[in-house]
Design a binder for these strands. Structure first.
Lengths: 221, 221
DNA sequence: TAATTGACACCTAGGTGTTAAAGT
DNA sequence: ACTTTAACACCTAGGTGTCAATTA
């Protein structure tokens, strides 16, 4: 069975303050279900509806940013960008990608693990580590294998460099952009010491919301 | 100053036997000068001549195979391929690539480090590690910024997939292939528990010799 | 009927030798 | 005179949404 794999887009980007310069840090990302439901999209209402209980969960994966470990000094100076994170709907995936159920809702989480020694072993179990977890509710999304809402499609085409080939005919109009923004407006954006920037173009952070969908777009495995 | 960087090609490929299944191993490659000389190529004689003493050596770099560490079990089963190893003539390189002087001769070396714990820290100093070093004299080469011998150019075009665009007009003739082989024949090929396979196409190992040149071909940094 | 797949054109990203120009 | 650089066309490799066909 060939399955889909795609990068998560827009990309999760985080920065940190309050670090110890000399300690080592590992930055991780995982994605957990926000509820026990399956969804479907009602085209005529342009909204998602509950469609029953969740399907059995696929294997849980914890993704460490490939540039980890960082020293506190290095980590202070930069934005950590998860542009290479891949999502798949293949329960048998052997690449270490994050596995999701289509038509289910998910919450990405960021984990910051501190290591006192220079120990650089993998993080097997967060409970055994000195760590903090950060959750940004504006990053919740619904996994799909095909876009349900054309505004999302257009947003992706507008922002993702790999979709540039589709841009001419599908730029967001001012009206569409306003519609998009009002759709997202009930999920207030905020910054903290860990600030995700989800817009791919400029750091003026267009927050995405429940309506955002990480597309599991076509790719063979 | 823009400098050149290129992958080493043909690729160094090694396999191992006699490993402890449960131990962890790190496979490294470095490249050391074989003498204290600078060379030049005499076109009319089709041979290299000594052209004086070596230039000051650039910074020494030790390259760990990116798939390291391996368990002994994993390492037994596969061929370790250094296809992503990059060479540069930029003494100020900040990518961790191996830095060489053009027109000097080099010997690649393979180092196998054993770790008893699951410790996966970097290898800073081989002398502090439990390790063995393997040297294959048939992998000696001369670093250049432009090919001196057209047979080498043709061999590279024939074998390197990225040079496919030049193949039509420059395939090696049978005569040229024989010439090549006789040029190499005074450097006997041998296999041991660590067998390098330097031919990129088939594992029937066309060994390369002193006459082989790792080209430092065009790429900006 | 709703969801998923697979072939496709069109991109980004980057590894080749070529060639003419520049450097030493 | 010899060596290195820089722009270039031509590749490999892989990330996009599209659309028609398939699946469940």
């Amino acid at each position: 069975v060939q399955r889909i794999q795609t990068r998560m887009f827009p990309t999760v980007r985080v920065s940190f303050t309050g670090l110890k310069s000399e300690d080592r840090y590992i930055v991780l990302l995982d994605i957990v279900p926000i509820d026990n439901k399956r969804y479907r999209y009602a085209y005529h209402r342009s909204s998602w509806l509950v469609a029953g209980k969740a399907d059995p969960p696929p294997p849980y994966r914890l993704y460490a940013h490939p540039d980890s470990p960082y020293t506190g000094d290095q980590l202070k100076k930069q934005i950590v960008t998860f542009e290479k994170l891949k999502l798949t709907n293949n329960e048998l995936d052997k690449h270490g990608h994050i596995v999701l159920n289509s038509m289910h809702r998910y919450q990405p989480r960021i984990h910051l693990v501190r290591r006192h020694d220079s120990g650089q072993g993998p993080v097997a179990d967060l409970d055994l580590e000195d760590h903090k977890t950060f959750i940004f509710s504006e990053t919740v999304f619904t996994a799909v294998t095909a876009y349900q809402n054309q505004l999302i499609t257009k947003l992706k085409i507008d922002s993702n460099p790999f979709a540039k080939g589709f841009r001419d005919s599908s730029r967001l109009t001012d009206f569409e952009r306003e519609t998009m923004e009002s759709m997202l407006s009930d999920h207030p954006y905020f910054r903290s010491t860990l600030a995700p920037v989800l817009d791919a173009h400029h750091s003026s952070a267009a927050p995405l919301s429940l309506e955002e969908r990480a597309v599991l777009a076509a790719r063979a495995q």
